[in-house]
Design a protein around this nucleic acid. Structure first.
Length: 881
RNA sequence: GAGCCGUUAGUUCAGCGGGAGAAUACUUGCUUGACAGGCAAGGGGUCACUGGUUCAAAUCCAGUACGGCUCACCA
């Protein structure tokens, strides 16, 4: 009871109490703000700006936790860390949400008008930005809010204009009429990667077009029969003997009655279908190319909303799907359509609205990609390349860049960066510039905005003051050090940042790019709204705390792999936090009045002290190396093992000896070691679990305001002690053997029995005598005899360890048959091991070719096992005899 | 059609050339002066399959099967 009052820590870890107000404390101390300290080396991360469309999901939490872990560690390692926060206006996605909201209110953007619509969208943005910031807070992210950016900020908009104008002047941006992917729901153009191809059960319609002045027909097939309304040719392969006589002839297009030509074009594949293809230049990208080669008319048959237009004749006004059914019926009636085949095929859908995308002839702005891609790819052969982690994603990136096509950047939306192009009302001349032309009344600005990714592509430098190349942040913090993102946006974002950065700053945007996978549910399915299997990170934080969620996310997979979400795993992480909590609680209970000044590591250390300090060193080494490689799983596992198995299960138990004893000097040394080890451990754990470690660190003897700015632990070789490690190993084997035997004969540890240890030589006797206290505490014997010449009792259980044998005389308790059985099993084990090793060592190839160290190690093991084998054998003979 | 990833304990995943690991679940004991969300002991795997390289393969190479992803094509 007394101890309970000595510390303010409750016995059960309560994340809510620990996390509350902590973030405000950090913000108040400005620990997350980049200092610009010239003494320090800068280290920069820019956040992948989340869309202001809604709440953050687990994927965001994962992504941002990794960045937070990296930046917290770097800050502790003495870097001037800038982790720059911000958000993305997410043009099409946000506009869709705002429009849905308007629809609920019974209005729409056209009724509202551009200006009022924009005001509504800005309100939306504010609401969600606040929400996102509160989520960042809940996760404990160490962001520098003094530098927060939004993609529609003035500075970023200026960068967008600068880039657009420059690329236009260099001829790398052009405007033209091409086939693009059209989303009839949101009524905007989409880039190729915004189209998701899905397999659908469709139909394949076979038709015969009549040839003018002939009885012949030509067979064609299509999955989109309604597009025949826009056909302006039929194409065949020039070498196709079936059709050579028809080339140049005229086909009468059914229903429409239009006369169209049969052209020869090598695009046609003779092997496929009938070998003849209908050509619809305004509604198919390949047909568009064919049309260009043959100067064909382009007939657009749809409105922007996907309904048929006046060129569709009697179908004018029908939506595209109704038109299809109607036209199929009509063509069947006319005998033109003679066969309908079922066929599954890939159909493009809009990534945002989900509707079927229509290839559509339209005037849009494009980026001419080849020169930009070439320059970006050139970077990868240089020293200053972008390092993909894991490396294989570099291949994914390069493959895409090699096959790059021009990028449609105009979007028929309002929410975004308006294209800085003006058209002269009379002359139709185009003006492109950062500002409107002087006689503005004669000019009209392009109604469209730019693809969201056009501005995100500039994020690593537009957020730092560029295009002002002398901006302080740009000079100091660019290029950034690492970008953390998922493999699903390598094309959308990573690739585009690289080529824009190369083009405009002549540098890579980031040195490393750490790619992670997707979060999946427990069954391995993608988390999605339609499945309803999504998990809200805030629910996890609510239940188990941010630290548990973070540790789970960090250690749950390896770089590049997907991660399955399991509540049980988060729960087991909470157990770990609870363990950390209680180990600290125990330590603090035994450190009342002990201050930072009292810490003294120069005194005479116990075996436990020497051993734990050695293990601490090794842990620091592992954790630092693995975290630097972004191997958070490995780093976390080392910390977990160190804390739970070594610090708690062994060191703290051993430390109870002096702590509960009377010797003040020993007590102080133990307190010092405990305080030191805990302090160092909390520091290492801090980037993983920032809240709990800050709380504990604040209560431990410490100097400094916050663990966030405490120095990262360093390996201290003075504490490295091989001898202690070896001694500890022997001690642990003895204790485990005793526990083992007791379990075997069902003797609880509370029941005292005699323990005899037969040491191999006097050195080992001395060693064990020195550690007698530990043996007594852990084995609880009624009497402990350590000797090199022991009278071995007849009725005893025994175990063999390196350098010693132990005996527990358990008269009356021993089931000799069982014991003989056990020893025989053990002997069999040693026999097997010895045999394996001897076979290996007898292998000439092994001894000759394997590294000497490996051979030596195996020889050593052979000796050890031989010894054990012999002892077990002797013991067995004694028992049998 | 091309490429990438995965296949290891009941489950989720590490390990990636030298004796099969963790967490969780399971079994058995334990009112152990931090923690029963704990402690201790234990069972559980032809490391998908077939070949090859090597003194040595879960680990490297080739192929096969199954699962997943990406890109391209599909008139």
């Amino acid at each position: 009871m007394d101890e309970e009052q000595k510390t303010s820590l409750p016995s059960k870890y309560n994340p809510k109490a620990v996390e509350e107000d902590r973030y405000q404390f950090w913000l108040k101390g400005k620990y997350f703000e980049a200092t610009g300290d010239p003494e320090k080396e800068p280290f920069t991360i820019v956040i992948p700006p989340p869309n202001v469309t809604g709440r953050l999901h687990l994927g965001h939490a994962w992504d941002m936790t990794m960045q937070d872990t990296i930046s917290r560690m770097k800050r502790m390692q003495g870097y001037d860390v800038l982790w720059l926060p911000g958000m993305d206006h997410a043009g099409i996605a946000t506009q869709a949400k705002v429009e849905a909201k308007l629809k609920e209110q019974g209005t729409n953007r056209y009724d509202l008008g551009r200006e009022k619509f924009m005001a509504t969208a800005w309100e939306w943005k504010k609401e969600y930005a606040d929400f996102i910031r509160s989520q960042w807070e809940s996760l404990g992210l160490g962001l520098d809010y003094s530098r927060e950016r939004f993609t529609l900020d003035d500075g970023l908009s200026d960068a967008v204009k600068e880039v657009f104008v420059t690329l236009y002047e260099k001829g790398l941006i052009y405007r033209g009429e091409y086939i693009i992917n059209w989303d009839p729901k949101t009524r905007t153009a989409l880039s190729d990667i915004e189209v998701i191809y899905e397999e659908v059960e469709g139909k394949f319609y076979h038709m015969r077009y009549p040839i003018k002045d002939s009885d012949e027909t030509i067979e064609i097939a299509t999955t989109r029969p309604e597009t025949m309304l826009g056909d302006t040719a039929v194409a065949v392969h020039p070498q196709d003997e079936r059709y050579t006589h028809l080339i140049g002839k005229t086909v009468i297009l059914p229903i429409v009655g239009r006369e169209i030509e049969i052209v020869a074009d090598e695009y046609v594949d003779m092997e496929l279908g009938s070998g003849a293809v209908k050509i619809t230049p305004a509604h198919d990208p390949n047909d568009f190319e064919v049309g260009n080669r043959h100067n064909l008319e382009r007939i657009l048959i749809m409105h922007e909303d996907g309904s048929m237009n006046e060129n569709a004749g009697k179908y004018d006004g029908l939506n595209r799907f109704d038109c299809r059914s109607q036209i199929v019926k009509d063509l069947q009636d006319q005998g033109v359509l003679f066969n309908i085949e079922n066929r599954t095929h890939q159909v493009g859908h809009s990534e945002r609205s989900g509707v079927v995308v229509e290839p559509y002839l339209s005037t849009q702005w494009f980026v001419h990609m080849q020169p930009l891609a070439d320059a970006a790819m050139g970077l990868q052969s240089k020293e200053e390349k972008v390092n993909f982690v894991p490396e294989r994603f570099e291949g994914t990136y390069l493959h895409w860049m090699e096959n790059i096509r021009d990028w449609v950047i105009s979007r028929q939306l309002w929410w975004g960066h308006r294209i800085p192009a003006w058209y002269h009302k009379e002359t139709k001349e185009i003006y492109v510039g950062k500002e409107a032309p002087a006689d503005s009344e004669n000019w009209e600005q392009d109604e469209d905005v730019l693809d969201t990714w056009f501005s995100s592509a500039l994020w690593p430098f537009s957020t730092m003051g560029w295009p002002d190349e002398n901006a302080a942040d740009f000079k100091r913090y660019f290029p950034t050090d690492v970008l953390v993102t998922g493999y699903d946006i390598i094309f959308f974002w990573v690739a585009r940042m690289i080529f824009q950065s190369k083009q405009f700053t002549d540098q890579r945007p980031f040195k490393d790019v750490l790619i992670h996978g997707l979060i999946r549910d427990a069954e391995g399915r993608k988390m999605s709204k339609s499945l309803g299997n999504g998990v809200d990170p805030m629910d996890v934080v609510e239940k188990y705390g941010a630290d548990s969620l973070r540790y789970f996310l960090l250690t749950g997979s390896t770089p590049g792999q997907d991660l399955r979400f399991h509540w049980e795993k988060v729960e087991s992480t909470w157990n770990f936090a609870n363990k950390v909590w209680n180990a600290s609680r125990f330590s603090l209970m035994n450190m009342e009045g002990f201050t930072y000044e009292d810490i003294d590591l120069s005194g005479e250390k116990s075996l436990a002290d020497k051993w734990i300090l050695t293990r601490l060193n090794e842990t620091i080494d592992h954790v630092t190396k693995n975290t630097n490689k972004y191997e958070f799983g490995e780093a976390g596992r080392h910390l977990y093992n160190f804390i739970w198995d070594e610090l708690c299960d062994w060191y703290i138990e051993m430390a109870k000896l002096p702590l509960y004893g009377e010797d003040e000097e020993k007590k102080n040394t133990t307190r010092s070691v405990l305080a030191y080890v805990l302090d160092q451990t909390m520091r290492m754990l801090h980037p993983f679990m920032p809240f709990i470690t800050e709380e504990i660190w604040q209560q431990l003897p410490h100097v400094g305001e916050s663990i966030t700015t405490a120095a990262w632990p360093e390996v201290r070789n003075v504490f490295h002690d091989e001898v202690a490690s070896k001694e500890m190993k022997r001690l642990v084997s003895i204790i485990k053997s005793v526990r083992n035997i007791r379990a075997e004969v069902d003797t609880p540890m509370s029941k005292q029995v005699k323990l005899l240890i037969q040491a191999e030589d006097n050195a080992i006797v001395r060693e064990l005598e020195k550690n007698r206290d530990y043996l007594e505490r852990f084995c609880n014997p009624s009497e402990l005899v350590i000797s090199s010449q022991l009278d071995i009792p007849e009725q005893a259980m025994s175990a063999v360890i390196t350098g010693a044998e132990i005996y527990l005389p358990l008269e009356g308790l021993i089931d000799f048959e069982k014991e003989i059985n056990r020893l025989e099993r053990e002997l069999a084990k040693w026999n097997k091991e010895v045999e394996r090793l001897q076979k290996k060592l007898a292998n000439e190839g092994f001894v000759k070719k394997a590294p000497q160290a490996v051979v030596d190690e195996e020889k050593q093991k052979e000796q050890d096992y031989l010894e054990k084998q012999a002892k077990v054998k002797t013991r067995l003979e004694e028992l049998k005899g």
